[in-house]
Design a binder for these strands. Sequence first.
RNA 1: GGGAGCUUAGCUCAGCUGGUUUAGAGCAUCUGCCUUACAAGCAGAGGGUCUGGGGUUCGAAUCCCUAAGCUCCCACCA
Length: 884
Amino acid sequence: MSEIVSKYDPRSIEDKWYAYWIEHDFFGSVPDERPSYTIVIPPPNVTGVLHMGHMLNNTIQDILTRRARMKGFNALWVPGTDHASIATEAKVVALLKEKGLDKNKLSREEFLEHAWEWREKHGGIILKQLCKLGASCDWKRTKFTMDPEMSEAVIDVFVALYREGLIYRGVRMVNWDPKALTAISDEEVIYKEVDSKLYHVRYKVDETDDYVTVATTRPETILGDTAVCVHPDDPRYRHLKNRELIVPLVDRKVPVIFDEYVDMTFGTGALKVTPAHDINDYNLGLKYKLQVINIFNDNGTLNEAAGILVGMDRFAARDAITILLEQAGNLVKVEPYQNKMGFSERTNEVIEPKLSMQWFCKMDTLAKPALEKVMNDEIRFFPDKFKNTYFHWMSNVKDWCISRQLWWGQRIPAYYLPNGEFVVAKNIDEAYDLAREQFPRLDFQKTDIKQDEDVMDTWFSSWLWPLSVFDGIRNPENEDINYYYPTAVLVTAPEIIFFWVARMIMAGLKWKQAIPFRDVYFTGIVRDHLHRKMSKSLGNSPDPLDLIQKYGADGVRFGMLCSSPAGNDLLYDENLCEQGRNFNNKIWNAFRLVKGWNISHEVEQPLHSTTAIKWMQQRIAQTSTDLDIHFEKYRLSEALMTIYKLIWDDFCSCFLEVVKPAYQKPVDKDTYRDVIDIFEKLLLLLHPFMPFITEELWQGLKARTIGETIMLQPTPANPGFSPDFLSRFEQMLKVVENIRRIRATKNISPKNALELTILQAKDDTDMQCSLNAVMSKLCNLSSIRYDNKKSEGCLSFILQNIEYLIPVADHGNREEELKKLQAELDYAKKFLDSVTRKLSNEKFVTGAPEHVVNIERKKQSDAEAKIKLLTKQIADLSTCPSQI
RNA sequence: GGGAGCUUAGCUCAGCUGGUUUAGAGCAUCUGCCUUACAAGCAGAGGGUCUGGGGUUCGAAUCCCUAAGCUCCCACCA
């Protein structure tokens, strides 16, 4: 125990306990008889550095894991990182550039060496940062999506799916990233609204002096035009049947085609067709067998096929072409135009639709069962509104482009023979054997076989994650996979519901015939208090490690969780962490108080303590029940708030105030024992949310032996509670409040004892005596008297139709008192009115259920009684000319 | 263009199948206190016609319609 001071200092404590937990392997898990509770981490990119989104996401996972552990599950949280092909490769390329190295001048092997070196050096940063947060991952099980056995599983899956016909190779229009020089999937394209221009360009009709004007946002693609399309019903263009047009600048003759695809109302109703550079044009090209002219190099510059401006970048070419068109008199007009453009998620480069040979994974047969499992709630989404999103996407799912023109990743296991034929196999040896078998007449050596240059999409390894971390692909019946799978819950962001969540469900059903997780908890986006997304470029994202340094991991965890129901964005404000830190401090000081007491074996346990202990125990039992419900529904912030109030309001503000001994007096041993016991239970309930301070105090509360930890204690047993007792206690606290209000308004020091008179027949039941004892302690009452008539010189209040009197020397302003009473009376009358109106409505009395009517009747009689009392008070006060 | 969701106190949010709701919480605010655990605190107080308008019902924050504002997702409109 460090020196006890009034300010809690997490820094001296957190690292110590984390090291202790690691040392004793408390996070570790191996299969046993207990039920399993598994979470696999959404693997952060190896390039990643901890940001606020990770903080939120991983705090939630840690809370769920720790809670499950204490609930008697064999809980396992599997950590790991993702190789993130594009992001990492871009990073390594940039780093090499700094060193004066050009990726293109390196061999594949050389580049990969650099990449691995980079990942050895920097790849684990984010996981170390998670330790600071208190993450209770089983680090011995840390996986990386490019670990040899993980990669092997990916290759196995590719080969198997290929043999089943679910993976195929084909020429398609793909989203090309001219900066990263790779195709990317539809999900990696982000569409943004941009201000651009609509260019109206005229094409000469061959063998006439006529012109046709088309509207385009991309005049540079004119160089690749191979047709102009108009609507068959468009009267403006009927005369163009069988005509040809001349493409400006390149003087190519192209046909006019007629297709209903064209929107007659847009622009001039004539559409230029560039099959190589637009998906719709491509489709038209297929339909009308148009020539396909690719005018771009992979890096987005014009190639030889463009004919002019060769080598110029596509955007520079746009300006150049515009000028050329204008000079030739073919630019009719240019107007401002808003349209959506696709950008690469990774490089933010404008996507270029490009025709290329790629590998695809067929989705429809995989998607169908995966859709069902969510729609029938076998997999539950929290919040469930994401079911709609999921349904929509899964019902219209398109094939997945899984090849990437990169080096960092699992290389496509397709092997090409010199003549262009290929086989798909796990490795070169198998490929060779297979090729021999399939092409017996071909003459080739093993060294003639060349593996495909491309790697697979990162998500093609991540979709296997819940299986592959347990080696469930290569070894489908091993002990781990059968014990830990399906996992309990996936905690992730809604942005990757298609990238990842949907595909994991498909993979789980395909390879293990079972769902990968029972629940999915979608976190929101972390925003600043101005509702702006936290981002590097805005500079509004605090460094989580700085926050931990300032407020402690427990404080930050509190801040993250305090206001973030599933699916809701978290409006982060440093103020929340401050609240968390204050809470730490509050608990810390409660601990100081209790541990500072002298214990006496002679003193009897006072009645007020006995009563308060009984109450506190029952409040804990009641709260435990609430917590179970909150956790079941993933209402984590509500769960935290529930404990927060239990500790701050009930335990500190009320309970400790009752049981704490008078100044410099000792506490009796029974009370001490029970207080420690109660404190311990509270720490257990709080532990999943604030692991460090709870461990520190739990260790200090009683003598513990090395190797003990709060982490592995079971949550407190729930002995049940009496709602009647709790509500009586609650009412007593209302009396306390009123007495305090009188003290506050009349400036009566808490040191001056007061006499309380209750206008009621004497109640000396055990229960009432107990409650009175507590009340006396909390309000510093010298006596509690029962009477049937009012004495002079008192201030009074009414609760539950019982009048309470406190004698007060300074009687204060009678007018003011009258005014207050009158206001209270008015309120009561109005209330009675509304109740009476309800009750005199025959339809209500006959229509409403009996218990509802009874409630109203009770309200009515209570209100009547209250009015009577208030009226009497007012009469007393105004007839008595000068009280006291 | 299609779809989903949101709008309750200054802020962030609860409010489950309509009925102990003339609406709760935390934070913030205000007042009084450096009271012998804690000023990162204690005690007390104020604050909302539940976005507007209609409707259903004995009864609506809750269900329906409608208007406005905001947010997100999906889609190949040049």
